[in-house]
């Protein structure tokens, strides 16, 4: 009997791997869809030819390679980074609501952006185009650093970190409102646009940067997969299995900080993906982090990529802020999955 059970377990494992592969293909398809939609109305064949490097008109070349491709890649990578950050946060903070958005990372990044936009204060030595992103990155990273520091001083568990995170969220939001209050009409408009999350400003250097951050963190996340899985059974259990829980939490939060800060600083405040990506992945493949983490990454990429396409097509001729769209398309999917899960 045990052999049959093991075989069934391995079959489930293969099914989950297949699901991850399907998610990957879906994300790729979404990327292509994102590439071929746009206000320029390029024919599909022309876009594909430009992508494969064939001879096309100079304008087409520019639209595909310098406008659409960076935006589409940025959507994919930001979705992946936010969902991975959310998944790992939910596990190490033992809270299903934890994600960069709820713990004040996004609002701190927005505050940093506001300092650049409204007050004109940016990091010295940084080219002006990068001023807003640089500030946002610094503030987001600072928020998570502060969180860890406070948690360490207080010596408490994850509940303390969560409470500090929520408090940080409100503080940053209040300071942001203050800056909005004193901002000029021009700066205000720019700021509002930023806080809604936008892919419009995506450029290759940003894409490369977030790609590098992902490439540097993902291998460590995957290596910690069994440790993170064990943590789902409780802190004492994980420790008794030989997991250095404090160290795991510290390193994981460092990875999360880098992922969240770089994602938010590139595209502004985008809620929901970091929360729903992991939840959708969990409903699809369960909580074994060896499949749950890749599934979260790909779900996040897929959702964000679809949102990017929809932000161009939902209202013809208008490019909606992508942060709005993630919520609009994400929520119904999310609710459908929750309701389906209940009925089972």
């Amino acid at each position: 009997m045990s052999d049959a059970t093991l075989q069934r377990y391995h079959r489930q494992g293969r099914r989950n791997t297949l699901l991850v592969a399907v998610l990957g293909l879906a994300a790729l398809a979404a990327l292509l869809l994102d590439l071929v939609t746009g206000p320029a109305g390029l024919p599909l064949a022309e876009t594909l030819r430009a992508l494969t490097g064939a001879e096309v008109a100079r304008g087409t070349q520019v639209i595909v390679w310098d406008v659409r491709l960076p935006v589409a890649c940025m959507a994919l990578l930001v979705g992946a980074a936010l969902a991975l950050a959310g998944a790992e946060m939910q596990t190490v903070l033992e809270n299903p609501l934890a994600e960069p958005f709820t713990l004040g990372v996004s609002s701190s990044a927005a505050l940093g952006a506001a300092v650049a936009i409204v007050l004109g204060l940016t990091l010295p030595g940084l080219p002006p185009v990068w001023g807003v992103s640089g500030n946002a990155f610094l503030f987001a990273l600072g928020a998570l650093g502060l969180l860890q520091l406070l948690g360490r001083i207080r010596g408490g568990g994850p509940e303390v970190l969560i409470l500090f995170g929520v408090a940080l969220n409100f503080t940053a939001a209040a300071l942001l409102s203050l800056l909005q209050f004193v901002a000029s009409a021009d700066a205000l408009q720019q700021l509002v646009f930023w806080t809604m999350g936008s892919l419009a400003a995506a450029q290759w250097p940003g894409v490369v940067m977030i790609g590098v951050v992902l490439a540097a963190t993902v291998p460590f996340s995957f290596r910690a997969a069994w440790k993170l899985t064990a943590l789902r059974l409780g802190e004492d259990q994980a420790k008794s299995f030989g997991v250095d829980v404090a160290g795991l939490r510290r390193w994981t939060l460092l990875r999360v900080s880098l992922l969240a800060a770089s994602a938010v600083s590139m595209v502004g405040v985008i809620g929901f993906v970091g929360l729903a990506g992991p939840h959708i992945a969990r409903m699809l493949v369960g909580e074994n982090h060896r499949v749950f983490l890749p599934a979260s990454i790909l779900t996040g990429a897929l959702v964000m990529s679809l949102a990017s396409t929809l932000s161009k097509t939902l209202v013809p001729g208008v490019l909606l802020p992508v942060g709005l769209v993630t919520s609009l398309i994400g929520l119904p999917i999310f609710f459908a999955l929750i309701l389906r899960g209940r009925r089972r």
């Binding site: 064990a230 994980a238 030989g242 074994n288």
Partner: peptide, 17 residues
């Protein structure tokens, strides 16, 4: 947790080793 029982016991073996 939505881990299955077998997975949780495997985690007990593979998390620290």
């Amino acid at each position: 947790s939505s881990l299955v029982a077998l997975e949780s016991v495997i985690a007990a073996l593979r998390a620290g080793d």
